[in-house]
């Protein structure tokens, strides 16, 4: 019992970090799912969109906006830079799909996926050319401020403010997204295209445009993930590797399933952090990928999904 009481604050502390990472994986996984639903491919550059978002925010917009707004404007420059990053990601998503997907849209999905793999390699090297090889540090809204609270007198929990911010921000984003998909014309058209592209086209929906918008939206989600992570991570090329974790989240939740993406993300984030603590910090990535392989073998439809995994 004493042991439990002693461990509890540490577990809570790590769980908060795990859930925060989980939210990020969930956002990126949602991007995988939207693109999968719309055009039936896995966009292998999704993780690199996170990196591009991080760089756009930390290396391009934050310095520029901060110099516009002058000192003491951390809050407004964060929101402005976030908005500019989202706009930038719309362009990234639209242009990428025009070059990587659209000319190949009639080809086998595997062909298109190779093409997204090429995009991934391109973006990594583009980042070196555009932003250099030095990882970029940025402070975001909260910098390195830590939030402490007492857990029922058992001990102090110490977490980064940024973790809490990620949880709140993601929750709000998901509510807005759900309203967007159920209320707005664009959102409902996107759902229709995701369910049946041909039928949607024959009901008068401009499907190529909706698909481009879907790519743009997936790209915004990745970009937002990059912005949220930037103050915790350093922004570097290596940020793209988050794509694999998010892909795991997608598989765990059920590829194509919106709720599944989030639940999968939260699970993967928690598994990662807790296994680092209680199994092995060295093998935590391996453990996550064992989960991935286990799901692919035993439950390829994931927790919430239908059986959709055909040929990847």
């Amino acid at each position: 019992m004493d042991f439990l009481a002693e461990q509890l604050p540490i577990v809570v502390q790590q769980l908060i970090a795990g859930l925060a990472y989980g939210c990020i994986y969930g956002l990126v996984a949602l991007g995988y799912n939207f693109i999968w639903n719309a055009v039936g491919i896995v966009n292998l550059a999704q993780g690199d969109f996170v990196m591009v978002g991080g760089y756009l925010y930390a290396a391009s917009f934050v310095p520029v906006v901060a110099s516009w707004l002058g000192p003491g404007s951390a809050g407004s420059s964060f929101w402005t830079a976030l908005l500019l990053t989202a706009v930038g990601m719309v362009l990234v998503g639209m242009v990428s799909q025009r070059i990587v997907y659209y000319p190949l849209r009639a080809s086998h999905p595997r062909t298109i996926m190779i093409s997204t793999m090429a995009l991934s390699i391109f973006l990594k090297n583009f980042a070196i050319v555009a932003w250099g090889t030095y990882p970029v540090a940025t402070s975001g809204l909260f910098g390195q401020k830590w939030f402490r609270f007492d857990l029922f007198g058992l001990g102090t929990v110490t977490v980064l403010y940024q973790y809490v911010f990620i949880l709140v921000f993601t929750a709000i984003l998901l509510v807005v997204q759900s309203a967007f998909f159920s209320r707005t014309r664009l959102g409902r058209s996107m759902r229709a295209v995701a369910q049946d592209q041909l039928a949607a086209s024959l009901m008068g929906i401009n499907t190529p445009l909706i698909i481009a918008i879907t790519f743009a939206y997936a790209s915004i989600l990745a970009g937002v993930a990059g912005v949220l992570l930037a103050p915790i991570f350093l922004v570097s090329q290596a940020m793209g590797s988050i794509g694999l974790k998010a892909y795991t989240a997608s598989i765990v939740g059920g590829f194509g399933n919106v709720i599944g993406a989030l639940v999968g993300g939260l699970l993967v984030g928690s598994i990662e952090v807790l296994s680092a603590s209680y199994v092995s910090s060295v093998y935590k990535d391996a453990i996550v990928f064992v989960v991935l392989i286990a799901f692919l073998l035993l439950r390829p439809q994931g927790l919430f999904g239908k059986k959709v995994i055909g040929s990847l």
Binding site: S189, R191, A192, Q195, A199, A200, M203, G204, I205
Partner: peptide, 27 residues
């Protein structure tokens, strides 16, 4: 406009939403 020999309603949209998205081309 057309219908399909093999049914192609949008399965996860409600009945109303199915009809609504088809109205959008007139907005």
């Amino acid at each position: 406009a057309r219908t399909f020999q093999n049914l192609r309603v949008f399965p996860s949209l409600s009945v109303r939403e199915n009809v609504t998205v088809s109205q959008f081309c007139r907005t």
